Simulated scan of single mutants.
Amino acid sequence: MKPFAVQAGEGAKHPTLTTGWALVKADTAATNGALTVMELLIPRPKAGKLSRPVDPEELAALGHACWIELAGPPLEVSDPLPR
């Protein structure tokens, strides 16, 4: 099978509403319309300026309503801010 995704940090770069970027790793053209994979790059300074803690279930519900499935541990677990 021919590889259809690109490496971390590579891919078509699109700006997001959070002043970050979405990198398209694999699109529907490469997967016969079955899958789109994106890497989201979110600026870290914004993380400390949220008005309240984000409830994981609320975030999952919001993502589901937008046809997004969030996978993996929360960012505070996988890449915590230095204390």
Rank of each mutant, 00 (worst) to 15 (best):
V6C: 15
R52Y: 10
P3D: 06
R44W: 10
A61Q: 10
P3W: 14
C66H: 09
D55Y: 00
A22R: 01
L17K: 04
G72V: 05
V24E: 03
D27L: 02
R52L: 10
P73S: 14
L40W: 06
A60M: 09
D27Q: 00
V24P: 00
I42C: 05
K46N: 04
L41W: 03
E10Y: 06
K13P: 08
E58F: 02
G72Q: 10
E69Y: 03
P73Q: 07
L40G: 06
E69V: 07
K2W: 12
T31H: 06
L50W: 15
A61M: 07
P15M: 08
R44K: 11
P73E: 15
I42K: 06
G48S: 15
P3T: 12
L70K: 12
G20T: 02
G72M: 07
K2L: 06
T18S: 14
A5G: 02
A29Y: 11
A12D: 12
P43I: 08
R83L: 12
L81E: 11
G72I: 05
N32S: 14
P15V: 05
R83K: 15
T36C: 05
T16C: 05
G9I: 04
E39L: 05
K49Q: 14
L35K: 00
A34P: 01
T16D: 08
G72A: 13
P82Y: 11
T16Y: 01
P15H: 12
E76W: 06
L17Q: 07
P56M: 09
A34E: 04
P82L: 08
K25W: 00
T19H: 14
I42T: 14
W67G: 04
E10D: 14
R44Y: 08
E69H: 13
F4M: 02
G48F: 11
G11L: 01
D27M: 01
A61D: 04
E39Q: 11
A22W: 00
L70P: 05
D79R: 12
I68A: 07
L81G: 04
L50I: 14
A47S: 15
P45T: 13
A34Y: 04
G63M: 08
V37A: 03
L35V: 03
P56Q: 04
E58L: 09
P82A: 13
G63E: 09
A61L: 11
D55S: 09
P3H: 13
V6E: 02
P80E: 09
T31F: 07
G33S: 10
